[in-house]
Design a binder for these strands. Structure first.
Length: 633
RNA sequence: GCUCAUGUAGCUCAGGGGUAGAGCACAUCCUUGGUAAGGAUGAGGUCGCGGGUUCAAUUCCCGCCAUGAGCUCCA
């Protein structure tokens, strides 16, 4: 499917634009009018409404920067004040072509240069479909609409950012400047939205990760390589323990395998050299390197030799499957043994493009909560069901309900797929049947399947609205074939098992990043790196504080003592900034009464209670993996 | 990888052709306190890295590296 056909909406869909989308789309025209007045040689491509605003793609020699925003906004305000009507004019294709050739579309007057992008967009309009222009004052644009009545309605607007984008999302087409803005029905709504954007920044896992001491990414270590600091590691351990418990219950076997493998392994799997652009470069063997150096071989010769298998080397693994496959293949299997479920927190390395890296959500080295299930075709549906149930359980325990499920199918016209069409049909039917029983909404995405099989993905949004794939369940007919995997069936003949790749978290890095944003750092007690902090009123009560912390620690609670010379108010402030769920204040009063004064991160002052009561409360909360008040926001 | 922007103390940021500043954090001391910031003093910087222009560059120019937004990509 080409980008343009994916993006192009039918006329019907366009007419169904919501009021807000209509306003924003109109504001995009207002912005284009202003840009056109300031830079008459600007060429416009497409300018649609998007989720939180609108953009217009512009080709212009002048590089628009944020410093230009005030003058563009001023000009926009003028266009709004003029309150020109948006007038729709239906034209014939020939008329539209003539106007575009005269440079009159996306313009405030005729120009020597044709409206090249508009000509291109005209080409995409199917024969027979109505072609319309919209005019506001002098500004004429090829546009199906709809629009608001007058420019005066676009009062509450703001330019947000400028970025680049390829024309029609195609990297072989020209790079355009994409100017983003937003528009609301009222100034108050706009202001509320801008406040929301600011709040979103405060939830950003990169910021919280630093403030809470969870992880660090160091230039000298390498881009996209996450260092889990002690507090982040505690969260990860809690997650791994949680998932391990679920795997034990569901009959998985845990394995451990190395992070590298010989190139031949990946030639067999098909990942080398075919996908080498997204892998770290191979590690050639030392004696081979020395021999080549002696022969004054060039780099290109080395690369060619590695690709063709003339010399051997190792690869940082881009996925765990081949190792698990080799474990499966190391034994003979009867149909009675199946399914074989091999699980590992497996670390993989992928050479993601530098512009795509960010925080923990897109990294170059990450650990999947991976497992591979080898089963008979008949077992496939039940196994997939188990996987989906696990993913759903995991998300449910964490209070993450704002996700969508995507059933990714093959494009029947595509040629990138491997395997028997009958198997595909069977697998797709099985996945659809299972996902329907899951009790969540799902969408089907044709053409999104992996080349080796269909899959089901769990997709969540981050704090700035970007969608990320987390958990995934993928059916694979390809690798069992390539590695010639077999099991002996009841008929005493060798049969090909089906493989399922699945990872309910996706990767611990991405999942933890999204979890930080989901909880705004306020992890439920079972995940909180520091579950309780003892705050002695003064140093005089340090012994009592030590005693209380000792008893909490003995009960398995992660507890610390604030030994600073600060007053209680300051200690509470710091503990709250660190998002510690339970604060225990200890002073003369508590010692006399044999209690501790408890304050909860979200619930405030809980009053005095015997320490044993509190230990019981906290331990129950941890054992139940209770969400408490976390995750409700 | 592409376009644009950014890079000054651990963090958030101000400044600006004549080798640097604030707040917070940190250290020491005073204070020993009652539920979101007690006070004083001090330490801390090759102004991302490398070139160039200049008598002089952290400041201007170029290249690189990193970060951010968007695009493209994600087996």
């Amino acid at each position: 499917m080409s980008a343009s056909s994916k993006e192009r909406k039918t006329l019907d869909e366009r007419q169904q634009m919501s009021d807000l989308e209509r306003l924003r789309h109109s504001c995009a025209h207002v912005m284009a009018t202003a840009v056109c007045r300031l830079w008459p040689d600007a060429q416009f491509a497409a300018g649609p409404p998007v989720e939180n605003g609108f953009y217009y793609d512009i080709q212009l020699d002048h590089h628009i920067s944020t410093e230009d925003f005030p003058r563009i906004e001023e000009e926009m305000a003028r266009v709004v004040a003029e309150d020109a009507p948006f007038e729709k004019v239906v034209v014939s294709r020939d008329e539209a072509l003539a106007l575009a050739r005269a440079g009159r579309l996306g313009a405030t007057g005729e120009r020597p240069a044709p409206s090249a992008f508009k000509l291109d967009l005209l080409d995409d309009i199917p024969p027979g479909e109505e072609i319309s222009l919209f005019r506001n004052g002098d500004f004429w644009d090829l546009c199906a609409g709809p629009h608001v009545a007058r420019t005066g309605e676009c009062r509450a607007f703001k330019l947000l950012s400028v970025a680049s984008a390829f024309h029609k999302g195609d990297k072989d087409r020209p790079v355009l400047q994409r100017l983003y803005g937003t528009c609301f029905g009222s100034r108050a709504e706009l202001d509320a939205h801008l406040v929301l954007l600011e709040e979103a920044k405060r939830r950003d896992h990169r910021r919280l990760g630093r403030e809470l001491g969870l992880f660090h990414i160091d230039e000298e270590v390498g881009q996209g390589l996450v260092l889990w600091k002690p507090k982040g590691a505690l969260i990860r351990r809690a997650l791994q323990d949680f998932i391990t418990g679920e795997l034990d219950r569901q009959g998985y076997a845990q394995v451990f395998t190395p992070h590298i493998g010989k190139l031949g392994l990946y030639r067999t799997s098909g990942h080398f050299p075919y996908y080498q652009d997204s892998q770290y470069a191979p590690i050639p063997e030392r004696d081979q390197l020395e021999r080549l150096a002696d022969e004054n071989c060039s780099c290109a010769e080395l690369v060619n030799g590695l690709e063709q298998g003339a010399y051997e080397g190792y690869l940082l693994r881009p996925m765990n499957c081949p190792h698990h496959i080799k474990i499966y293949a190391s034994d003979h299997h009867s149909y009675r043994d199946l399914p074989v479920r091999l699980a590992e927190f497996g670390t993989v390395y992928r050479w993601e493009q530098s512009g795509e890296l960010g925080g923990m959500t897109r990294v170059r080295g990450f650990t999947q909560d991976d497992a591979h299930i080898f089963c008979t075709p008949d077992q496939l549906a039940a196994e997939v069901q188990g996987c989906l149930g696990l993913a759903k359980t995991v998300l449910g325990v964490l209070g993450m309900h704002d996700y969508r499920v995507r059933l990714s199918l093959r494009d029947p016209d595509g040629d990138k797929y491997v395997g028997d069409p009958a198997n595909w049909a069977k697998a797709e039917a099985a996945l659809r049947e299972v996902v329907e029983t899951l009790g969540v909404d799902f969408t089907e995405a044709v053409g999104e399947a992996a080349f080796y099989g269909p899959k089901i993905d769990f997709i969540v949004r981050d704090v700035i609205g970007r969608e990320w794939q987390l958990g995934t369940v993928q059916v694979d007919y390809n690798l069992p074939e390539r590695f010639d995997l077999t099991y002996i069936g009841a008929d005493n003949h060798a049969h090909r098992p089906v493989m399922i790749h699945r990872a309910p978290f996706g990767s611990l890095e991405r999942f933890t990043g999204l979890l930080i944003e989901h909880f705004e750092g306020k992890f439920p007690t079972w995940l909180a790196p520091e579950q309780a902090r003892v705050l002695p009123i003064s140093e005089k009560f340090m012994a009592a504080a030590e005693d209380a912390a000792g008893r909490l620690g003995a009960a398995g609670v992660r507890v610390s003592i604030d030994r600073s010379a600060d007053k209680v108010g300051a200690k509470i402030r710091l503990a709250r900034l660190d998002r510690v769920p339970y604060m225990l204040v200890i002073g003369a009063r508590e010692i006399e009464q044999g209690t501790v004064a408890v304050r909860h991160r979200d619930r405030g002052d809980l009053g005095a209670m015997p320490l044993d009561d509190l230990v019981g409360t906290i331990c129950t909360e941890i054992a139940n993996r209770s969400l408490g008040s976390a995750g409700t926001g």
